[in-house]
């Protein structure tokens, strides 16, 4: 009984995180402007990181933690770089 509940709730939360990533991907594809795409990319990074954490819980393996941390760091630097790029002003898509 408990086993079934655990299996299903972990699976359900991974499905929800996957849907969240799909929402962010849709916004990246759809735009309409560059700032929206960057915002969605940042959200996608966070969602991917949470997905990795849930994989870690599922397999009881701490190796996923390092990956999650690296994704968080790289996502932050990438979003900052993109935002700075937009601030320059000459770049109009």
């Amino acid at each position: 009984m408990t086993e079934l509940a655990i299996t299903w709730s972990v699976l359900l939360s991974q499905v929800m995180l996957g849907l969240a990533m799909a929402c962010a991907l849709y916004r990246i594809a759809r735009g309409p402007r560059a700032q929206e795409r960057i915002l969605a990319l940042d959200t996608l990074y966070i969602n991917a990181m949470l997905m990795l954490l849930s994989f870690g819980i599922r397999s009881a393996n701490t190796i996923y933690f390092e990956t999650a941390l690296i994704i968080a760091v790289i996502g932050f630097v990438a979003s900052i770089a993109f935002a700075k790029f937009l601030m320059r002003g000459e770049v109009i898509e």
């Binding site: 359900l12 939360s13 991974q14 929800m16 995180l17 849907l19 969240a20 990533m21 929402c23 962010a24 959200t43 966070i46 969602n47 949470l50 849930s54």
Partner: peptide
């Protein structure tokens, strides 16, 4: 937590 994240991305 997953539901909260989903709402945020929605």
């Amino acid at each position: 937590g997953a539901a909260t994240t989903l709402i945020g991305s929605l």
